[in-house]
Computed example of a mutant assay.
Amino acid sequence: MKHLVVYAHPKPESFNRAILETTTAVLKKNGHEVIVRDLYSLNFQPVLKPEDTAAMRSGHTPQDIKTEQEFITQADVITLIYPIWWTGLPAILKGYVDRVFSYGYAYSAGEEGIIKMLTGKQGFIINTHGTPQEIYDKIGMSNGLKITSDIGIFDFVGIEPVGHLLFGSIGFLDDESYYKGLLKEVEDKIDSLFPS
């Protein structure tokens, strides 16, 4: 399978980076083809500008958007790895969704309503956040995050959500075994979803 991993974290030494490295290593070990789009390294421009919309409507998609859309088109699986900031996506990733999952490419509308244009693909998400996981679970935030991204982004355009890992207390626990355990969870989940 062809996997596209879209990664959004600004710090090279972050735990998200360790998650990215684990994810790509397991996928490659299982014989999958992996492309990583590190949005910060790419200096991806996240702001959807009026000229972007006008260009796409006239059939002249800006090259940076077109490049990302080509990676999505070629992928069987799209994995998003990012931290939860202010209960949502980092701005750079939100802008990626705004600009790349565009009308006419990822979805359109007709008499029946929304037309999902990215069917046949699978979506997987791994998130980190500083709040303890049990608090997010208790107040409904974990479910809310899954609804807004799994359903609100992936399912909206026809991508089948197949898994979503949420890891809490990141950066606030100084227990190496805790982080190793989370990376093992990532490894096991990917092995079960995308075996060799």
Rank of each mutant, 00 (worst) to 15 (best):
Y7A: 07
D174C: 05
D98L: 07
E68S: 06
D64C: 04
G158I: 04
G158H: 06
K28Y: 04
H32M: 03
L173I: 14
L183P: 01
G110Y: 05
Y107N: 00
T22A: 09
N143C: 06
T24C: 04
A18D: 12
H129T: 09
H60N: 14
H164Q: 14
P10H: 11
V97A: 07
V157H: 02
P50N: 13
G158P: 05
R99S: 01
L166A: 07
I126N: 04
N43G: 15
T67C: 02
H60C: 04
M56N: 03
E70I: 09
F44M: 11
Y40L: 08
I19M: 11
A55R: 00
A18K: 13
Q133F: 13
V34E: 02
D175V: 14
S14N: 10
A25E: 14
Y179H: 05
T67Y: 11
T24A: 11
H9K: 08
W86R: 09
K94I: 10
P50Q: 08
L193N: 06
T53R: 12
E111C: 01
D191E: 14
D38K: 11
L183D: 05
F101H: 03
G144S: 10
A106L: 06
I190C: 01
E13I: 12
L183R: 07
Q45I: 12
Q69E: 06
T128D: 08
L4Y: 02
G181Y: 07
F101Q: 01
P50C: 10
N43P: 03
I147W: 12
E111V: 09
D175M: 10
K2D: 10
F194S: 00
D76S: 09
T131D: 05
W85E: 04
R99G: 00
E160F: 05
E51D: 13
L42G: 13
T128L: 10
R57H: 12
E176A: 14
Y7F: 15
A25K: 14
T87E: 13
